[in-house]
Design a protein around this nucleic acid. Structure first.
Lengths: 228, 228
DNA sequence: CCGAGTTTGTGCAGGCGTTCACAAGGCGTA
DNA sequence: TACGCCTTGTGAACGCCTGCACAAACTCGG
């Protein structure tokens, strides 16, 4: 589960957040940044920032802080953002449209190689400067574009088959938006984004808060009854 | 960080996955399910399932398994899905459209109370059976609908202000899709979904795999050179 | 050059989560 | 009732992550 030089997963997950904050600082003309202020911008504490960055090597200067530009470079390199990644998006429904038009892709070296759909009525549609192609062209597209990342934005029932075909075509990293648990062979990385699950987690905490405030308002009432 | 009866966060995050699997099993006519087969459907191991479910109480029967219907009921209750939650969605761009049309919302008791946008050209637009309203109506809408969950689907630059206004209006749980770190006061739950971060994490692992396969193909070459 | 102030890098302890392994308990059959 | 089989529930060990606290190291002003 560890990275190439043993970078913990938890750190890898935070590096993009630091990177975004650092790019903002660089645009703002900052030359250096302390772990404390970077922590503020990233919403974590400074000890975590220092420990995370220490995994990349010792790029800071005691008494001064970190060189913003240099840190941007190092984190980008570590995350593999200095090279372009070709991404294929399968499923051009509402979510597929949103993803295709999302500017954050190209911004960090992710190039959309193709938009695919199984519905022939959608094939040929123009979207984000690309023509939607049929899922049967997947093999050829992945081979030509050397795409190694696939995004699944299909309905749940189609996701596992699409996943299998992506793997078959040679994709080794998959980002799944469909609300199903997918199975992939060893060596293929799979991450999922599930709106429904996020809402249910919020619901849990919301209920907990509601129960607590009910307790707080009910408790004095109980006491009054007890005193009566 | 613990739940009402001390349910660990990691368990809460898995309960929706179990729930989805259980609903599928119930539809398939299964009366009971073992921790092992539920684990298979949820993509985890059986020890985790048993420990997670044990936090809800002892609803299983040794030698038999868990009653599917009963477990669905208990998990739903624990997650607060037995009541309706009103949700306001701010930002009706590409992502807002996708969210508004996403069926997974209503499916689990999440009712979209309103769609809001700051752009007056978008106000009045009909979307998923709702009329888009202006962000200035937020206070009134939250008060009327008793919405406690807000979804931010705006551009990054607008997200913090929208967040503040949501909190001000009385929303206590926020799901953020904008690629920024938001600050919320204590007592407000905040979760984020960030496509760009997910891709960068995949990129990291992809690079690691690429580096390893380069090593494997390069190593014999080095040996040849060394032997020459 | 020296001392005060600042900030990094890290050893260490504590907490949370995962997994193993097995005792406890329930069911079916004879 | 007794026995064998199956599955849950959980104690305990391990590992990862977090956060504290402080020594090390650098800058700046005099």
């Amino acid at each position: 589960m560890k990275g190439s030089r043993g970078i913990p997963d938890a750190t890898v997950a935070r590096l993009p957040v630091y990177l975004r904050a650092l790019v903002g600082l660089a645009d703002g003309g900052h030359e250096t940044v302390s772990s404390d202020s970077l922590a503020g911008a990233a919403g974590v504490n400074s000890a975590k920032v220092r420990k995370d960055l220490s995994h990349l090597g010792s790029y800071g200067t005691r008494g001064v802080g970190y060189d913003v530009q240099y840190l941007v470079h190092q984190i980008s390199r570590e995350l593999g953002l200095t090279q372009d990644w070709a991404v294929v998006i399968v499923g051009v429904g509402n979510l597929g449209h949103a993803l295709a038009n999302y500017g954050g892709f190209a911004e960090r070296g992710f190039r959309i190689a193709a938009l695919l759909d199984a519905d022939k009525r959608r094939v040929g549609e123009e979207l984000a400067g690309l023509r939607v192609r049929h899922i049967d062209e997947l093999d050829a597209i992945v081979r030509e574009s050397r795409a190694s990342i696939g995004v699944i934005a299909t309905p749940a029932y189609a996701a596992q088959e699409v996943c299998d075909r992506l793997v078959q075509a040679g994709v080794t990293s998959i980002l799944n938006f469909a609300p199903v648990v997918l199975a992939v062979p060893p060596g293929v990385d799979l991450r999922k984004v599930d709106l429904s699950i996020e809402l249910q987690i919020l619901s849990f905490h919301e209920q907990r808060k509601a129960a607590m405030s009910r307790l707080r308002t009910a408790a004095p009432l109980d006491r009054e009854v007890a005193e009566a």
